[in-house]
Simulated assay, not measured.
Amino acid sequence: MAKTQGRSSWLNALTMGGGTFFIALAAGYGSQFFLGKITSIILSFVLLLLIILAGILFDIIGVATAAAVEAPLHARAAKKIPGARQGLSLLRNADRVATFCNDVIGDASGTLSGAIGAVIILRLVGQHGTEDILISTLMTAVVAAVTVGGKALGKSFALRQANEIVFFVGRLLHAIEKVTGWQPIQNGSRKGRRQ
């Protein structure tokens, strides 16, 4: 039993690590491609902000999934409310969902925001001939402050509204299933989180 759990943990870690690599690769290439096409510094900042916001949103989902309980979703699922079944699936796979949202997407968005910040710094230095050490220090500080501050606010919100956030994400997943037929989250085993 312990051997199987050990193998499962290793497989999960390898899957998440590989997933992070490919997500960061695809997102990094996409963002660099768009940055190459975008000549406006303002639009570059908008792209940077969107990537930081994506990291914050996924962090909220990860925390909410870890904090929510099944009972309210069972009541909604019994009434056949769309999204309740998908919300239960999120909770029954809470460890994987939290790892994906907080670590995979969180780390990828952190890496990307740093890379895009570096590109913006180079553009600002090139355009204004300003001292690059000052700009790079300010950019790093701003990106870190927005990311950490946003995640702190997000975590507080996620802990207060965990069940509603999970239900909202469940409704989004239900809409995706309805349109595409694809189930992003499969039903997992019960975790005993019914309180």
Rank of each mutant, 00 (worst) to 15 (best):
P82L: 07
F34L: 15
I116S: 13
I165M: 03
W182S: 13
L90A: 05
F21V: 14
A84P: 04
D107A: 04
V166I: 00
A78C: 00
N102P: 14
Q161L: 01
I133K: 11
G188C: 10
L124D: 07
L48F: 07
A98T: 12
A94F: 11
V148H: 13
V169Y: 06
A152F: 05
C101T: 06
D59K: 00
K178C: 13
T140I: 12
F33P: 10
G19P: 03
A13L: 15
T130F: 09
N12V: 14
I60V: 01
A78L: 10
A77S: 06
A77N: 09
L124I: 15
G129M: 03
I52T: 04
A66G: 06
V143M: 06
G129F: 03
W182R: 14
L11N: 13
S109E: 01
L112C: 04
I120E: 07
D103N: 15
G36R: 04
S31R: 01
A66E: 15
V148A: 14
G83F: 02
V143D: 15
Q161R: 09
G30H: 03
L49G: 09
I38K: 08
T39L: 15
I38A: 14
M1E: 11
F34T: 07
R85Q: 13
E164L: 03
F100V: 07
A108H: 00
V69S: 10
R193H: 14
T140E: 06
L90F: 04
K80R: 08
W182D: 05
I116Q: 05
T140N: 06
V179T: 11
V69H: 10
M1R: 15
G30P: 00
P184K: 06
G106C: 13
A54I: 13
A158H: 01
G87P: 01
A152E: 03
G110P: 05
L159M: 14
S189V: 14
A67E: 13
F58R: 03
A66V: 09
A27H: 02
R123L: 12
N12Y: 11
M139G: 08
G192I: 03
K191Y: 04
I116P: 09
E164N: 02
T140K: 05
I121S: 11
G154V: 00
Y29E: 06
G150L: 02
T15G: 11
G188N: 07
T147K: 14
Q86V: 06
T4Q: 15
A78Y: 05
H74C: 00
Q86K: 04
V104K: 02
R85C: 08
G55I: 00
I52K: 06
L14W: 08
H174R: 07
I105D: 13
E70G: 09
V148I: 11
F45I: 10
F33M: 11
D59G: 10
V63G: 01
K37F: 13
D95M: 02
V146S: 02
L112G: 05
L153D: 04
T4R: 14
G154M: 00
L48T: 12
F58N: 14
V46A: 09
K79Y: 14
I105M: 09
E70W: 04
R92G: 07
V104E: 05
R190E: 15
